[in-house]
Amino acid sequence: MLTALAATALAYLVALPVGLTAALTHVRRLEELLMRPLDVLLAVPSLLLILLVASVFSPGATGLALLVAMVNVPDAARIVRARRARPPPVPRSRRCACRARPGGASPWATSAGPPCAPSPPTPESG
C-alpha cells in the first residue's frame, strides 16, 4: 500500500510541473519538447515495461515505486495539461450554430438553414 502511494505521489510530483508548463506555455516547440517523450513512453505497454524491467533488475520496494511512477507520469501529465489548457476559440462563423444546438436544432438545420444574426463582439474578438 505504501509503495502504491509513493508511486502515485512521485508520478504527480513530476507530472504536475511538466503538464502545467506544457499547458501554459505559448511556445509550441517547448510544448512539443515536453510532451513528445511522454507520448513515446505512452506507446509502450506499461505492464509489459514494468514486468520486463522488474525481471531484469529485480528492484526492491523503492525501485518498484520508481518504476510504476515512471510509467504513470505520461498519463498524469496529459491529464494535467488537458485540464489546464484552454479550448480553441470557436470561429465567428460557427458561434450561432454552437448556440442553436443546445436549443434542440439539428446539425442539418444549423448548417443548411437560414443564416442567423451575427454574434455580438466579445472582448477577445474585439
Rank of each mutant, 00 (worst) to 15 (best):
L64F: 12
T122V: 11
L34E: 14
F57G: 00
S106Y: 02
V56I: 15
A4W: 08
V73R: 03
P74K: 03
C98R: 10
R83L: 14
A9V: 14
M70D: 04
A15V: 13
L51E: 03
V68W: 04
G104P: 08
S106T: 15
M1R: 12
D75R: 03
L34V: 13
L67M: 07
A9C: 13
V71C: 06
S55N: 12
P102M: 08
A97H: 02
R83E: 13
S93W: 11
S46M: 01
L20T: 08
S58M: 00
G19M: 10
A109H: 00
A43D: 00
T122D: 14
L64D: 06
S125C: 06
P88Y: 07
E32C: 02
L52I: 06
R101H: 03
M1W: 05
M70P: 00
P118F: 04
L13Y: 02
L10K: 01
V80D: 10
P102E: 02
A105M: 09
R94L: 15
R29L: 15
A112F: 06
L30Q: 03
A77M: 05
A109Q: 05
L20V: 11
A22P: 06
V80M: 07
G63M: 04
F57E: 09
L52T: 14
P17H: 10
P87W: 07
L38A: 07
V27K: 15
T122I: 03
V71D: 13
V68E: 05
F57D: 07
A65L: 03
V40R: 01
R92K: 12
P102I: 07
A7F: 06
C98I: 13
L5W: 10
V73N: 09
R84K: 03
P118Q: 08
A4E: 13
R81T: 01
L49V: 13
R78T: 01
A7W: 07
G60R: 09
R28F: 08
L42S: 09
A100P: 00
V53T: 12
P115D: 09
C96W: 05
E32W: 09
P45V: 12
A69G: 02
S93R: 12
L30F: 11
R95A: 10
P87R: 11
R94E: 15
S106D: 02
A65V: 04
S111L: 14
S106C: 06
L20S: 09
L67T: 10
C96Q: 10
